[in-house]
Structures are given as C-alpha cells and as structure tokens.
C-alpha cells in the first residue's frame, strides 16, 4: 500500500469566478502524498496555496464560483466532477482540516466539547455520550491540561495556542487519512508555534496519516516535511524531496526564498536579502515565466512560453526553468 499515493494531484487548474473578476490562482500543478508522508507547500502570500488544497474539496467561501480541471485522486477516487454531497462525505471523514486562524475557526457560541463531539457522532456513528468520551480522549491527545473543564468552555475563554489544539482535535476526530494544515502556526506566538508544530508532527507519525502542510516558513519545512512544492504565482516552480531542494535549490525563486532566511553568520543590521520586486497579481495566466520580471537569470525567451516542469537527470527534483535545466544539462 505504501507505494500507492494517498493523494494524487495532477495538472490541477482552478479558476475562481467572482462578481468582480475571474482569476486563476492554481494553474496546472501536480504533486502527490503517500500515507505517513508530509508534503510542504510553500510560496508567497497569494500564490494559490490555500485555493489549491481547499477548492477540490469544496471549501471555498460563498459568493465564489469554482471551476476545476485536471485530476485530484484521493485513495484512487477522482474528486473532480464528484457531486458535492459525495465530497461532503469525505470532508472530516477522510480529510481533516486545520486553519490558519484558530481565533475565528471555532464557533464562538458553542461549547468546545460539542464542537469536537459532533465529529465523532457524524463520522464514527457514536452516541452523544460515547462521542463526549471520545472528545475527552482527543483533548488529552492534543496535550491540553485540565481536559474535563476545557470541554465545557467556550472558544473565547482559551488562548490562541489552546484553540489551535482544539482545531487539531476536531480535525483528528473523524480519524482521517489525510490532514491538510493551512499555515497552522502563522497566527500564533512564536513560542507556541514550535509546540503546535511538534504536536502536529507527533500525531501525524502516531496515527500514520498523510499530511499537507502549507507554510511560509522554510524552517518549518526543514523540520517537518518529506517533500516540498514551491509555488509561485499559481504554478509550481520546483518540487522534490526536502533534503534535496533545501540543500541545493535550483529554481531561481526557490533560491531567493532560501536566501531570504536570516543566517547566523549575518552581521547584525545587515540588509534583508529578500527577492527584489513584488509578486504579480493573479488574473489571466501569465504567458511566459511569471518570475521573469524579478529573475536574475531571465533571458528574453523566458517571457515567450510557459516553462515546463522538467525532471532533473540526477534526482527526483522537478524544476520549471529552462535556463537552469539547460545549464545543468550542458554542464
């Protein structure tokens, strides 16, 4: 079973139609996650990470019409084209979700215990009483002290870190095979971030789940993930095993990202080494390479056609940059 990917996304394209505009926040992206594996998705804000993971599972805000194409297979089952009631059955049961902002992810007027227990009732067919017991177990599992009292509290009575633990408990309650965590630590205090991340890693390993971890933080990627997809302007720029991509990044954008991490040997007060320029605003897909205006290596041909993802000859890494790929081949 281990060889068969749990989630297999290929050539996924998402168009969002709103009253104001049409955008394509995901443009032909492919990746896969196996059981027990953790895939990190990194990229600048607005590069389409959230949409890419949520849209195929029908989790878009109201007022947006979603158009999907390509293929998303969960346990071999095609999600694209699946009617909403069928997808609804998968949410919570096969896939658990963790959100960026735990402060707003919980219903403020319902007790925490109910919000966890209803998952067990819904997906494990438990009686309300059994579900309460299960909720207690889960709250203990995510490391919350005084669990009995917590279950009777309301979200606003807890700190951000505790709330995120509750959200994790909810995500785990249906015993999903895949966990999608959308920037689970971004809204938290720095000290709490590490704890939550450790917790996530820990439960993922213990329950042998697959996890998709969306993040901005390269440090998080290095510590937690097996594979990585680097997104830039709705497309995958580079993807492959974390140890290869982080150690020897090849795509100019990945290099820029890794370069931007402050290093110990930096003199204090030295200039921040971010990528110059700003990311493009999404709308119609860009004809050539989206990075061209910001790229050091850009050649005129970059703006002509879209660079394909090409497997480098030595490894499992895929890079969408002909300049780098050809350079490598020539060398």
């Amino acid at each position: 079973m281990r060889d068969e990917a749990l989630l297999n996304v290929s050539n996924l394209t998402v168009n969002l139609l709103t009253a104001k505009s049409a955008v394509r926040p995901v443009d032909g992206v492919s990746y896969s996650v196996r059981q027990g594996e953790c895939l990190a998705i990194v990229g600048e804000s607005g590069s389409g990470k959230t949409v890419m993971n949520f849209a195929p599972l029908g989790l878009m805000p109201t007022g947006v019409t979603t158009m999907l194409s390509g293929s998303v297979k969960l346990e071999g089952r095609e999600l694209i084209g699946l009617p909403e009631p069928e997808i609804q059955k998968l949410r919570g049961k096969s896939v658990g979700f963790i959100f960026q902002d735990p402060m707003s992810a919980l219903n403020p007027v319902r007790r925490i215990g109910r919000q966890i227990a209803e998952m067990a009732e819904l997906h494990l067919n438990m009686t309300p009483r059994a579900a309460e017991a299960r909720a207690l177990e889960l709250v203990k599992l995510v490391g919350i002290s005084d669990p009995v009292a917590r279950l009777r509290q309301y979200p606003h009575e807890l700190s951000g870190g505790l709330r995120q633990r509750i959200v994790i408990a909810i995500a785990l309650a249906g015993e999903p095979k895949l966990l999608i965590a959308d920037e689970p630590t971004t809204a938290l205090d720095v000290t709490v971030q590490a704890q939550i991340l450790r917790l996530l890693k820990d439960v993922q390993r213990r329950l042998d789940m697959a996890m998709v971890l969306i993040t901005h933080d390269m440090g998080v990627v290095a510590g937690a993930a097996d594979n990585i997809v680097v997104m830039y302007a709705a497309r995958a720029a580079e993807c492959g095993p974390v140890d290869k991509v982080l150690v020897s990044p090849r795509h100019p954008y990945t290099r820029g990202l890794i370069n931007a991490i402050p290093r110990r040997e930096d003199p204090i007060g030295s200039e921040f080494r971010g990528l110059p320029g700003i990311p493009p605003t999404l709308g119609a897909p860009i004809k050539g390479c989206a990075l061209a205006p910001r790229c050091e290596l850009a050649v005129p041909a970059c703006s002509n056609s879209r660079p394909p993802l090409v497997r480098s000859d030595d490894s499992s890494v895929l890079v969408a940059c002909p300049v780098v790929n050809q350079g490598k081949a020539a060398a």
């Binding site: 394509r24 119609a284 879209r306």
Partner: peptide
Amino acid sequence: PKPLTRRMLAARRLEVASWDKENSDA
C-alpha cells in the same frame, strides 16, 4: 456581497475560456 448573476457567470466563463485558447495558441 451578492452572488454572481447568471449573465455575469457566463461572461466570466468566456473570459476563462479565452485564457486557455491563448495558451494553446502560444
């Protein structure tokens, strides 16, 4: 915010379709 009217939705779909055409032309 109001949801899209049917006519707007059709217009947006056309817009999106034109993207794919451009790309395949390229």
